[in-house]
C-alpha cells in the first residue's frame, strides 16, 4: 500500500511537483535524519546529510529504481553519513545492490509504513546486548562483520551467529506485533 503511495509521489516529483516532494519529506525525514544523527552525532552534519539525500531525490528521482523507498532512503542516508565520518574527499557508495536483494518483502515495507516506532524501539532495545551490539556496530558504526569481530575480540562465527539471532529476534517481535 505504502509502496504505491511512494511511487505515486516519486512520479509527481519527477514531473517537478514540489507538493509531492514536501509530502515525501514528511513521510521519511525522521528516518533519514535519525539514521544520519545516530551515525554522525552532530545535529548540523545530520541536517546536511538529510538535505543532500532529499535534494538528490528531487534532482535525480530515477536513482530510486524500485523496492521499498524507506529502505533505499535509509541506505543512502547511512552511506552518506559514513562517508562524512570517514572524511572522504569524495563521498563514496557501496556497489549497487543486486535487483534480487533490492526487492522488498511485505514485512520490510511494514516496518517503514505501518508499525509504531515505539514497537520497533522496544524490539531493538529488548535484544540481548551481545546481539544488539554487533548489529548496531555494523549498521551505525559502518563496520564489516570482520571489523566487529576484531573490535570485540570475538570469533567471526560468533559474530555471524549473533547477527542472525538478533535479526531473527527482531523479525519475531515484529510478527508478534502485527498479528496481535
Amino acid at each position: 500500500m505504502s509502496r504505491s503511495v511512494d511511487e505515486g509521489l516519486l512520479e509527481r516529483i519527477a514531473s517537478g511537483d514540489a507538493t509531492a516532494f514536501s509530502a515525501l519529506y514528511d513521510r521519511y525525514a525522521d528516518l533519514v535524519y535519525g539514521v544520519a544523527r545516530r551515525i554522525l552525532r552532530s545535529p548540523e552534519q545530520a541536517q546536511d546529510v538529510t538535505q543532500s539525500v532529499f535534494l538528490k531525490v528531487w534532482s535525480r528521482p530515477q536513482l530510486f529504481t524500485g523496492g521499498s523507498f524507506g529502505a533505499w532512503a535509509a541506505r543512502v542516508a547511512r552511506n552518506a553519513s559514513l562517508d562524512v565520518v570517514r572524511s572522504s574527499a569524495v563521498r563514496l557508495r557501496e556497489p549497487e545492490i543486486p535487483a534480487t536483494l533490492a526487492a522488498a518483502g511485505e514485512l520490510e515495507e511494514t516496518v517503514f509504513a505501518d508499525v509504531d516506532r515505539e514497537i520497533i524501539v522496544r524490539a531493538v532495545a529488548g535484544l540481548p546486548e551481545a546481539e544488539r551490539v554487533v548489529i548496531e556496530q555494523a549498521y551505525f558504526g559502518g563496520l564489516t562483520y570482520r571489523q566487529v569481530a576484531e573490535r570485540l575480540d570475538t570469533p567471526l562465527g560468533t559474530v555471524k551467529t549473533r547477527i542472525r539471532a538478533g535479526l531473527q529476534r527482531l523479525r519475531g517481535a515484529l510478527q508478534e506485533a502485527v498479528t496481535r
Partner: peptide, 23 residues
C-alpha cells in the same frame, strides 16, 4: 528477507524528527 526486516527495524529505531527549519 530476514536481514531486510531486521535492517529496516534497526534503521527505523533511530528515527528522530529534524528541526522544522530544515524543511
Amino acid at each position: 528477507a530476514l536481514a531486510q526486516v531486521g535492517t529496516a527495524m534497526i534503521a527505523r529505531s533511530a528515527a528522530e524528527a529534524p528541526p522544522q527549519e530544515l524543511k
